[in-house]
Amino acid sequence: MRLPRWRDRLLTAAVLVTVWMLLWGVFSWANLISGLLVAAVVITVFPLPPVTVAGRPHPVALLRLAWRFVIDLVAASFQLAVLAFRFGHQPRSAIIRVPLRVPSDLVLTLTGEAVSLVPGSLIVDTDRASTTLYIHVIGVADRAAVERFRHEVYETEARIVRAIGSDDEIRRLSDPPPVEKRRQL
């Protein structure tokens, strides 16, 4: 249990030092050392609940994820801009349930972020116990469009898991989507 904990702390420290150096804008030893000191203080004073990072990064899949993300972001931004300028057209929307196949907080968070950032979809609610996202989608005309969108969310999940997931999580992607999984309160 000790090793993953130190790995998480090192990751946090690396991110904090990077932000620190970007804030100063000068890459010098003084900034590196003061950044490390600040990171150490932040980590001790504000401890966060550990995030289980089960997998490891896969560079090719990461690049594919980033590329698709940029494409989606650009395409969907312009679609939404067109929708905004279609005066007199009342866009229809839907709220759909997408239970993810991989039960991981990290995958839930990253999928939620990716889905949120791509225009046209907004996370209304999440259920951590069943790793379910409830997504509000704008500009869907009918049920077929809703199902197409649901499929896209699963594709996003698959890309994220392939980029940062463990072998076990990647295997789970071939499972059928857990349609019957319901909210447990």
Binding site: P91, S93, I95, R182, Q184
Partner: peptide, 16 residues
């Protein structure tokens, strides 16, 4: 009236 489907409402109704 503008929602085609609201699956969150279905689930919330089931749960409570």
């Amino acid at each position: 009236d503008l929602l085609i489907v609201d699956e969150l409402a279905e689930d919330r109704a089931d749960a409570q």
